[in-house]
Each structure stands twice: as structure tokens, then as C-alpha cells.
Design a protein around this nucleic acid. Sequence first.
DNA 1: TGCTCGCATGTGCACGGTCACAATTGTGAG
DNA 2: CTCACAATTGTGACCGTGCACATGCGAGCA
Lengths: 348, 348
Amino acid sequence: MSAELPKERAPSIRDVARLAGVSHQTVSRVLNDHPSIRDSTKARILQAMEELQYRPNQAARALSKGRSRTIGVLTASSTQYGPARSVAAIEDTARRQGYFVDTANLSVADPAAIEDALEHLLDQAVEGLIIIAPQERVFDVLERMSIEVPYVSLQSTGNHDLRALAEDQILGAKMATRHLVDLGHREIVHIAGPQDWTEAEARMQGFLLEIDDAELMTHPPILGDWTADFGYFAGQELLRSRDFSAVFAANDEMALGLLHALHDAGLDIPGDVSVVGFDDIPVSSHTWPPLTTVHQDFEGIGRRAFASLLGAMGTIVDFPTGPTAPCLVARDSSGPVPVSRLPLLKRY
Amino acid sequence: MSAELPKERAPSIRDVARLAGVSHQTVSRVLNDHPSIRDSTKARILQAMEELQYRPNQAARALSKGRSRTIGVLTASSTQYGPARSVAAIEDTARRQGYFVDTANLSVADPAAIEDALEHLLDQAVEGLIIIAPQERVFDVLERMSIEVPYVSLQSTGNHDLRALAEDQILGAKMATRHLVDLGHREIVHIAGPQDWTEAEARMQGFLLEIDDAELMTHPPILGDWTADFGYFAGQELLRSRDFSAVFAANDEMALGLLHALHDAGLDIPGDVSVVGFDDIPVSSHTWPPLTTVHQDFEGIGRRAFASLLGAMGTIVDFPTGPTAPCLVARDSSGPVPVSRLPLLKRY
DNA sequence: TGCTCGCATGTGCACGGTCACAATTGTGAG
DNA sequence: CTCACAATTGTGACCGTGCACATGCGAGCA
């Protein structure tokens, strides 16, 4: 904690000008590195800035240029590992490009809250929006408010060039499913994410496509809410009502809850049941047993989203946005289908 | 994605004034709800605003008032559950109070990066700073840059009125340790967090205080880095070199890694070894076995930090900041000390 | 030598609010 | 009916930068 008592105004471009013996405009030119300035003048000005600890006033700049150099990030799940990671990457990339990032977090995703959060971001005159709250409702509100700012959704609704992301999700889910099929599993069930999340849908789609490819059948996926609690609940349900030798959960948290339920029932993993998750959150390699999952490049996704937004804002993008294709990380929660599986499961 | 072609300037206070047939100043008064305005006039102006979709320009306001209504959050670990949760709470509270939040994330915590991030925030003319990067280095940089903005650290260095937080950390650690002592454990080891994190220090301190109170002895704590990977490594080390019946890990991730190592060694939890974590991250209730841990009110901490910052910024705080004392959540990873423990452990 | 041209720099205003102060209108007492 | 005084509204300057345009100056060329 600290503060200066005088509370005087910060030095302005004119203060610098006076000290350097030039006009304020010349100082401005230095700030925007205009080509034609004598080197000696420039040096003098830079020194004056240094001396006064000059710091350009963003508000004034925004006012006069009509550009805030700020983007808004609307997130509905900033406490989850993936989104948090992506947001961090967005912030990092944006900062490098001289942009500021304003975040608005949705604790509840009802329309009023969504609108409130968007209003807040718009009040800041953001030049673009990144949405990490892929519920359809958000887009409804976005539509209704007739937002005049370019926006990009991390989860891709398919309208813009982030489509690649959705494809990655499908691919990842196919890889996970294929992995189980290759291990000999024939009765595989899927615990999906919330219906209105594009990611959840893509993963489910990938699962179903692969099941179809392998000419297998499956029960309708259970629709969850991403939480470990739900995974636990789903596990209990599955044990009560279904025959299966493998489960593909749409994210690691649900997979974790599922493991818990299976353990509770005295089942061996992967002896009795194989489990595969999605995301590769940091604890996945230390669950018991360590979780087979699909690794995602959350940071790449974030960078890509920002690049895409810059594009939509009319800026040419010239920095690496390198996304990585998802890859399967086979650990110990998945294994060959047990020969003696059926009698064991029938008990439940 | 969407955009208006005309690209005309947004309506200003003067446009509203013209439409309502008043002076721009009167409009301004409505915006700042000045007391003496005729109701009829006010109504007319409000309607004009509505009609023009008027939105006050924050940049202009900031420029003329010299206040940005923005606070900066510097975080070094925004992808971890606790900090993420606190940041979300800060953002939420700030928004409710009409403040904007600018975040800068430290991917690496070297002085240059810290300085860069701080520069970025100061460029935005933030009125206050919340630091969630409690490494001492950050404060060194803060000192060196002679920041003129009030700041508050989420982890409390003891200089300001967040001291309560540190006390909570100590208390929580004491509760965890006491829990193990009460179960009959006499050889308890501690896996601590990084040395330069105030939280890690507070938890270690709580542990040592309680051990002392119980007139027990302990090995010097192992200094970790908060990650599950480290917890796993630490577990292997402990098994190789120490006798113990219980471990108190400074956070849940490390506790998780530790569980993994213990499982690998074929040990039963809590039959052979009891484990207690700290934080109560959402997956803790679904690890195997479910983890006994200390629940923290991350949101309360965030709110409290913001309130404290407002105080430092000279604003009277009049909203609930309710922090919750930490509480022990006893699950299945801790149990009575095994009678036949010593011979079993000696093997390692 | 006179004129054009490009570089380096200066002048004045606009951006969209707020503030201090002035002007106008309304109200009640004498 | 008049006047003091409060309630309401208006006027103009200013916050810090950037832009459009003007100016001064030296070089190149006929």
C-alpha cells in the first residue's frame, strides 16, 4: 500500500514538450513513432519523458482516436481449468499486441446476468469480444442486444473461422472412442457435457461417429454438467442400469467422479471397467488409476481465438497462433476388455 | 460476428441534449443523478437516451474526472482453482460497485515479466492493484518501481488489514494437524508450498505450532511447488527415507500426487497412512479415497481483498465482504493410526 | 536567382464528458 | 407587488491526445 500526498495531475504530453523545448505535437509524434523527426529532437524528448516519468494517458488516447485497444472476455466458467488456461493465454497474447483485456465473469448464466455482463464490457468500449460461455442463451442475448462489436466464440458456433476448434473436439472424441474399441470393448457408454455447450455436442458427435464406424451400438449418452459430482452420480446410475465395459466421459472431472463411483462399487479399473476422460487436467496423471484422456492445447485455443478476433477487427495477424491437434494420453484407467466381465457386472 | 458499416461516432451527451431540447450539462446531471432536476426534464432526457441508444463514454469520463474506475489484478497462478475462484469473485464484486477489472497474468515470474505486467496495468491508469502473486520478488519490483497506486495482496504480507487472511491460513493448518493428532498420529510430516509464498509459510507455521502444542517432533517439511507432480515425487521420497503415519500437504494437488505415490507403493489409505490436504478443490471429494482437507472460502477472500482495496483507495465500503473461517472437511483419506504400522513402513 | 518540393515542426481544434460559475425561473414572505 | 433566495438550467473552459493544416527551412533544378 502506498500513495503520494500531493495528488497532482500526472505529467502530460505538454509538460514533456515544455521540458524538451518543443511543441506538444512533436512529442505526440515521438509517441506514435512518426518517421520525420530529427534524431536529436527525439532523443531530447525521450529524455524529458524519462525525467518526468511520463506515462501516456490511455483514456485521452482512446477518446481522441476513438479506439480503446481493449477487448472483452465474457466467461461462464473461469474457474475451470481449461477456460482459465485459455483466458490466461488470451490475456498474454493480447498484452503482447498492446491490447488490454477486460473480463466479465458469469456466476449464473441467466439472461439478465448475461446482459449485465455484456453491458459492462460495452461500457468499456471494447473493440472486440471473446465469448467463453458457449451456452446458446448467450448468443440469443448477443443477438437481441444487436451488439455492434465483432465477437468470436471460443467454442465456435461454426460461423467463423474457429471452426477448426470444433473439428478438433470431434477428432479428440473419436480418438478416445477408437482407443476403447481397439482395446476390444464393445459396450461403451458416454457421459456427455451439458446439451447447450458446443464442445459437449462436438465430443458426443465424435463419440457417436466412431461407434458407428466400428459398427457398434450404444445407449443414449447421459447428459451431465461437467462436474465430478455429476460423474459420481452418473456412475451410480450406470452401475444400476447398464451393461458396459468402458466409459468415455466428456471431461476429466466427470471421469474422476465416475472412478469414485466404480471404486465404491468395488470394481477394478481397468480390470472390470475402462475409463477415458477429456482435457488432461493436471491432476489426471495422479488419479487412481492415472486417467487415460485426450490432451487439449488450451493455450493454443486461446491464442487462436484472439488471432481470429483480431482478424475480425480488421487487423492483420502476424504472430504465431499455433494450435495443436488433440492427442490421446494413454494411462492406466483403460485396458483390454475383461473376458469374465459380464457375470461380474450383472450383479448391478 | 457483426458490424455496422456506417462506422459513425456513437451518440454523445450533446446529441441527447439536442434531442431532448436541453443543454448538454443537464444531460450530464441526469447521468450523475444530480438532485435538482425537474422530473419532467429528466424523463424527457431519459427517453432521448433510450431513443439514441446512448451509452456514456468511459474514456471521456475518465479523462475529465481523472479517475478510471478500473482496478488491476496481477496474478501468477490464474489457472489454479483457488486463485481463479478469487479472481472471479473480485471481478464480480468490482462490477457490482461499478469498477472495471483489468488482469495481467504472469506466466513466468521473473522480474522483467513482473515489471512488464505492472507497466501494462499502470498504463491503464488503474486506481488500485490486487496482487495474487505472493512471491517476494513481486513486492521487490513493486517497491523498486515506486508504484503510486494503493495495492493489496491477496496473500497478505502483514502490512495491511488483510492480516486476517494469513491468520486463517495458520488456523486452517492447525486444524488439519490437530485432526491428525486427535486420530492418534505421532509421526506426521508436512509437504509445504513454495518458500516464497506467504500462504505456504502460514500453513507451515500453523503445522509447526500445532505439532509443538502436541509436544511432538517432526521432520523438516519438504518444500514443494503446489503441483500434483511434486506431490507424487515427494511421496516417493518420503517412502524411501522416512517413518510416518500421516502427511499434511499444503494443498490438495500435492495431496493427490501423494495419494498416487502411496497407492503405487501398495499402501492402504487411511489404513497405512493418513493424508490431509488444503483448499478443498472440487475433485477432492472424488479422489480415491476422498480427501480430508481444509475448506477455504476463496470467494470470500476475493471479496475481502477488493473491499480492503476500496478502503485503501479511500472509499467507504458498505457491502458484505463476509469471509468464512476455514473448516476441516473430514473424508476418508484420514483415519486412526494403525497399530501395526511400524513394521510395515520399515520396509521402505 | 527564383521556384518547387520534402522534411521537420508548430497551431488550433475536436473527442465526450465534468466542473465552476452565470443566468433564468419559481416560490414565499413582507 | 417586490425582493430575497432556492431550484433549475445554460455557458464556456478544460482534461490529454491525435489530426488536419500551416509554417519555416534547406536542397534541387531550370
